[in-house]
Design a binder for these strands. Structure first.
Lengths: 118, 118
DNA sequence: TCAATAATTCCAGTATCGTGGAAATATGGA
DNA sequence: TCCATATTTCCACGATACTGGAATTATTGA
C-alpha cells in the first residue's frame, strides 16, 4: 500500500462520525447498508452523511453500489487488511524484535482462530 | 484500545510530515532520535517539528526523554500494536470470514518470521 | 554568571475540514 | 408524464489544522 493511500485512509478514520459509520458498515458485512439507513441510525442529515461516505469511499475503505433507489455502502475489507499490512511493515521494518505480538493478536482474534498455524 | 485513542492515533498519522517523522523514528529503534536531528533531516523548522512531535506524543505513538540538551523521541511500538489490534477487532467483529489473511500478513512480515507457530 | 545550543511555547496568517440548508439529480411507481 | 423517495452536489459559515517567526525555557560549558 502506498503511503498516500494509507494517509488518506487514516484521515478518513480520524473523525468520530466516519469512524462510527465505518464500524456499522463493518458489522453489516459485505452486503452493506443504504446511505439513508446509516444517516437515520446516526441521526445525521443525509447530505452530511453523503459527504462522509464519499470521503470513506475516496479513501478506498468502502465501496458503493446502487440498488434501485438505494445506494448501498459496504466496508472494503481487503483495504483494511492492506492498511494493517502497511502498519505492520512500517512497524517491523528494521525492528524485528518489537513486533512479535502482532501475529498472536491476529491469531487470537475470534475471526482468525479458525486458521491454525499450518 | 479506546475509540478516541484510535482516532487520535489515526489523525496523528494522517499527515505527510508526521507520517515521515514516525517512519524515521520507527527505523531508529527504541533509542529514538533527537528532535533537532529529525527537523534537520526533513528540513523543517524546529518549532514546526516540535508541534508535530507533540501531536504524535499526545496520540501515544511516540515517547520522549531528555538527555542533556537533547530530547529524544522514540516510536511507541506497543501503541502501534494496539492500533493494529483495534483495526483487527473492528474488522473482524462479526465478519470472521473476511479477516483470514491478517495472521498470515503478520507471520510473513520479516520481523515475525522468527516466531514459529508454537 | 554569561554565552551558546536545543527545544518549546506563543501567536498569527492561511488553508482545509465538518456541517447542513437549498437545489439538483437519479430511480421507481402511479 | 408526474410525483415521491433517495442521494448527491452546491454553497457558505464556523471551527480546526498547518506553518513558521519571535520570544521563552532548559541545559551545558566557560
Amino acid at each position: 500500500m502506498e503511503t498516500n493511500a494509507a494517509i488518506d485512509a487514516f484521515a478518513a478514520l480520524a473523525q468520530g462520525t466516519r469512524m462510527e459509520v465505518f464500524r456499522r458498515l463493518v458489522r453489516a458485512g459485505p452486503e452493506g447498508l443504504p446511505a439513508g439507513g446509516v444517516a437515520r441510525a446516526l441521526e445525521i442529515p443525509a447530505n452530511t452523511m453523503s459527504t462522509h461516505l464519499a470521503i470513506l469511499e475516496r479513501a478506498g475503505l468502502v465501496t458503493s453500489r446502487r440498488e434501485g433507489r438505494l445506494v448501498y455502502y459496504a466496508a472494503a475489507f481487503d483495504r483494511v487488511r492492506a492498511l494493517i499490512g502497511f502498519l505492520l511493515e512500517d512497524c517491523c521494518a528494521g525492528n524485528p524484535e518489537v513486533c512479535g505480538g502482532v501475529a498472536e493478536i491476529a491469531r487470537q482474534a475470534a475471526c482468525c482462530s479458525a486458521k491454525p498455524s499450518s
